[in-house]
């Protein structure tokens, strides 16, 4: 009976170690925040070009993450990208005339949305659309423009 008990204790220790490892992977490695993605309110923004922006990309203001991109859809009538943002409910006073930019972290890094606050006293609420947007900088286009202006400047 003592042997059976020892086995049970060891199995218990094994299972506890396994669950601790899973917990570690969930919390420390992938940083599961208990306030999940469903928290927060939605804003939309239309861009002429979002580059390679993807769902779950960060939304930042002053460089601090305040939300995530929930979805990137295409509007087939206006030929525009419609980006749905999930904003942290604690950030509840984003002015109406805020500017949304698609930026790249580093030269070749991931793309994210940076919000540049405006000065309007009216604030954006759930479901509102950010009117002022600036498209992603496409590296190839910039190089092309640079070369073009260089060539025309020389000539």
């Amino acid at each position: 009976m003592a042997k059976q008990r020892n086995i049970e204790i060891l199995v218990g220790a094994f299972m506890a170690a396994g669950f601790v490892a899973l917990f570690f992977l969930a919390m420390q490695v992938s940083n599961l925040s208990l306030a999940g993605m469903d928290e927060g309110y939605r804003l939309t923004a239309r861009f002429a070009n979002v580059g390679s922006l993807k769902a779950r990309a960060p939304v930042t203001m002053a460089g601090v993450r305040i939300g995530r991109v929930e979805a990137v859809d295409f509007d087939p009538r206006a030929f525009e990208a419609v980006v749905t943002l999930r904003i942290d409910p604690a950030v509840d006073s984003i002015p109406m005339d805020t500017f949304a930019n698609v930026f790249t972290s580093g030269l070749l890094g991931e793309q994210y949305i940076a919000l540049d606050p405006g000065g309007s006293p009216d604030v954006l609420v759930d479901g509102d659309e950010i009117m002022h947007t600036q498209s992603a900088m496409i590296l190839e286009q910039m190089i092309g423009q640079f070369l073009f202006s260089k060539a025309s400047g020389d000539g």
């Binding site: 094994f14 396994g18 992977l25």
Partner: peptide, 15 residues
């Protein structure tokens, strides 16, 4: 039952 727990231990120890 044991396999996912072992894999989790492997990954956690590896990290």
């Amino acid at each position: 039952l044991a396999m996912p727990l072992l894999a989790a231990i492997f990954s956690a120890v590896g990290v």
